[in-house]
Design a protein around this nucleic acid. Sequence first.
DNA 1: AAAACGGGGGC
DNA 2: GCCCCAGTTTT
Length: 218
Amino acid sequence: MHNKIFPIAKTFALLKPFINTSKAPVVEFIALQDKDPFKILIATILSSRTNDTTTTKVIQRLFKVVKNISSLETVPHDELEKLIFPVGFYKQKAIQLKKLPLVLKNNFNGIIPDEIDQLIKLPGVGRKTANLVRWAAFGKPAICVDVHVHRICNRWGYVKTKDPEETEMLLREILPRQYWPFINHYLVSLGQTICKPRNPKCKTCPLIDICAKIKVNH
DNA sequence: AAAACGGGGGC
DNA sequence: GCCCCAGTTTT
């Protein structure tokens, strides 16, 4: 499966001074000031494939109108579309949000679940979103594998797959639980600035000496 | 003006 | 597996 050693502590130590903690992902930022699972769920769904700046603007306006599950039912569909418009994919996301209260009532007694397998059944929620909600809203252990985490793990050579779920499962094995909440934050920061999809800036990478791709070949 | 950019879902 | 969804930000 995986025959490389992940120098976990060293990796995180090298990355730490490099992380801009004041610029936490929008969902974590929300969770910091308001642990309402509803708001975190909505913010997380809206943030998929959308930048944090845009998501923040949208949810600040949205939460003045939509404060809880029941108000999500009553808000007119076209008004909801207008409110979330800037995040993109707004038609699809509006449908998903309107569908949310019913799915919640039918399957989970109107309560937002905290398990991955349950969260995934909600409209607009895949594995990445489910893990992020589980962590941000409930403080439960979760590994949030987005495109950055997935790309970097593949680039390191710990896993070779197109399926982010496989990457998540691998990290579950090799990553001590204490690191789970941080792996996404750290690797997203690295992935946005250095370890980019194309033309990674390996010369200025803090992990240059332990990058598995360079150090190990097989 | 064009390319880059964070997932999810239906088929 | 393949395709669609749609805006903002950066180059």
